[in-house]
C-alpha cells in the first residue's frame, strides 16, 4: 500500500487515518487472536460430530467402536485430533481471556497483547503436553 495516497483533510492537509482494508492491512495481534477464536470455535463445532460418533459407537458395541478408534488412529484421524487438541486449548485459554474482558479488566493495549501471547503460547504448550501424555501413558 506504499503508492496509495493517504487520505487528507482538504483544508488543513492533515493526514487522516485510513479504514483498515483487510487485503493490505497487517492485522495486529488482538485482531488475529480474535479471528482465531472464531475459527477454532467453528472447527470445534465440527469436532462435536466426532464426539457424538465416539459416544454413540461406544454404546452400540465393540465393532462400531473399533471403527471409530480405527479412524481416529489413522494418519488423518491423528492430524484432526492434533488440530482439535490445539483448538480446544486455544479456545479455552482465549475464552478465559474473553471472560476477564467481560469484567472490564485487561482491556489496555499492553494487557491485550500479553493475553494474546498467553493464548497462543499456552495453547501450543498444553497441546504438546497433552500429546506427550497420550502417547506416554
Amino acid at each position: 500500500m506504499t503508492d496509495t495516497p493517504a487520505a487528507t483533510t482538504p483544508r488543513t492537509g492533515r493526514q487522516r487515518p485510513l479504514s483498515p482494508h483487510l487485503q493490505v492491512y497487517r492485522l495486529p495481534l488482538p485482531a488475529i487472536s480474535s479471528i482465531t477464536h472464531r475459527i477454532t470455535g467453528i472447527g470445534l463445532t465440527v469436532g462435536t460430530l466426532v464426539l457424538a460418533w465416539w459416544l454413540i459407537a461406544a454404546a452400540s458395541g465393540p465393532d462400531a467402536f473399533a471403527t471409530v478408534q480405527g479412524f481416529l488412529g489413522s494418519v488423518i484421524g491423528q492430524l484432526l485430533l492434533l488440530g482439535w487438541t490445539w483448538a480446544l486449548w486455544y479456545h479455552t485459554l482465549n475464552g478465559i481471556r474473553h471472560l476477564v474482558w467481560d469484567t472490564g479488566k485487561g482491556l489496555e493495549l499492553g494487557a491485550a497483547y500479553r493475553g494474546g501471547y498467553i493464548s497462543y503460547g499456552g495453547s501450543v504448550a498444553l497441546t504438546i503436553l497433552t500429546w506427550i501424555a497420550a502417547y506416554a501413558l
Partner: peptide
Amino acid sequence: VVRHAGADQA
C-alpha cells in the same frame, strides 16, 4: 480422552 487413547469398547 487422553487416558482412553486407543482403548477398546470394554
